[in-house]
Nucleic acid binder design. Structure first.
Lengths: 230, 230
DNA sequence: AACTGATAATTCATCGATCATCAGTTGATT
DNA sequence: AATCAACTGATGATCGATGAATTATCAGTT
């Protein structure tokens, strides 16, 4: 339908196809709770909402299914993957396992380039968190992106593409719980990020793993305490 | 097209839809090397081979893509995920990480039911390995299934569905290397399995993890030594 | 009034058709 | 003769149509 890339002044700007665009939108709407957990996804409705044909829609949903954001019960269509407390706990443990491991390898192998990426990512995240703490709620989505980019940067030198892909996928599923149930409890998170940055520059993997453990479990404990998740 | 389930004498036998059937066949053909790494997958050709329509085919390929068995280069169709030595190493490390962790949790939580599953799975695997060592090469595919079922049984009590799904997915990708490059080096593998069984019954997770490490790395070292992988 | 069975309406799975895109080839121009 | 452009055949992406399955509705019966 469209070109794969579009040239402007020497810089290549990728132009997404109809399907890719819709894929991104639907994924975004699931992660951010516009499409709610457990909600059925009638094809005709989605068709008009996202402006793509049935077949393209089904391709997208089939792609989202192995990623764990959509479930397909054969012959009965699709629905947004339901949320549960046990699933949240499993995801948290999984993220911790994957990210801890990647963290250690990354700290081992990271060069100065990597340090640069980490510092830059942390700076952007910290700025956004300042704004959020100041009451500016407009940037919640931007905040999640910077949070991801920071954690991504931390593990980016682990040397394993497979590990990074896995981490990204689990992060998305985990993020959905944060977004759907509006989990953001401010200062503690900010401190954790700063401490993680320091660990990275000191190459103190053990301490970073401990911090990550607290960072993640602190987050889900808040959710489970408040009884937010069914 | 067909019923989701078919009742016979109280037991429910799932009847797969056209799409599900083709999905299983294509996945099988990729894992077992019928469709070779890097090979392009022209839709018209697959259409006639597997006897399904274009749209259904694309659904299947889109589902296989996040599973890591197929890659989709935008606007230029699909191809079987290529193989490389680095990818094999990454997968081995990943499988080790996931399975080691699941093993420890499973040993912790496993009950007598679990022990039964493990013993049964090992028995079937051992029988098949006997036949293979005796020169009966007809059962290579059955062997892989029993090997998976044994490892699956070992971790089945870990208590995390997310972890089990992840393990299954990575196992498939890892298995492909074994199948495509005909890696089976007999006695050592058989001994490993017996030792793993003993560890399970003794609940000795640390020893099991060591064994698993040797089991997996021994396997890929053979492949890398022989220069089988690109 | 509640249950069961048949029928109608909705939703899904699968398909081939159509249009856009890509790669290889030919031909014109310098 | 070499280079670039337009042409052409092949392949992929997107779409709506069609028949099958599921769910909802309603009448008839106990």
């Amino acid at each position: 339908m469209t070109d794969a890339a579009f040239e402007i002044g020497g810089e290549e700007i990728p132009v997404l196809s109809t399907g890719e665009q819709a894929y991104e939108r639907i994924k975004h709407d699931i992660v951010f709770g516009v499409l709610q957990p457990g909600q059925r996804l009638p094809l005709d409705r989605l068709k008009s909402v996202y402006g793509v044909g049935i077949s393209t829609l089904r391709e997208i949903l089939n792609r989202l299914a192995p990623e764990g954001l959509v479930v397909a019960e054969g012959q009965r269509g699709f629905q947004v993957a339901p949320c549960s407390a046990t699933d949240l706990k499993e995801l948290a443990d999984l993220r911790l396992l994957i990210e801890s491991n990647a963290l250690a390898q990354s700290f081992e192998a990271g060069d100065v380039e990597w340090e640069g990426r980490v510092v830059a990512a942390h700076h952007k995240l910290a700025r956004m968190e300042q704004r959020l703490l100041a009451g500016d709620e407009t940037g919640t989505q931007a905040w999640k992106r910077y949070d991801f980019e920071f954690h991504q940067a931390l593990v980016s030198a682990c040397g394993s593409k497979a590990l990074l892909d896995l981490h990204a996928g689990i992060y998305d599923r985990y993020l959905r719980y944060q977004m759907v149930f509006f989990i953001f409890w401010g200062p503690t998170s900010t401190e954790d990020h700063k401490a993680l940055l320091d660990c990275a520059l000191d190459r103190d993997a053990a301490k970073a793993q401990k911090l990550l453990h607290g960072h993640i479990h602190g987050c889900i404990d808040v959710a489970l305490e408040r009884g937010l998740v069914g």
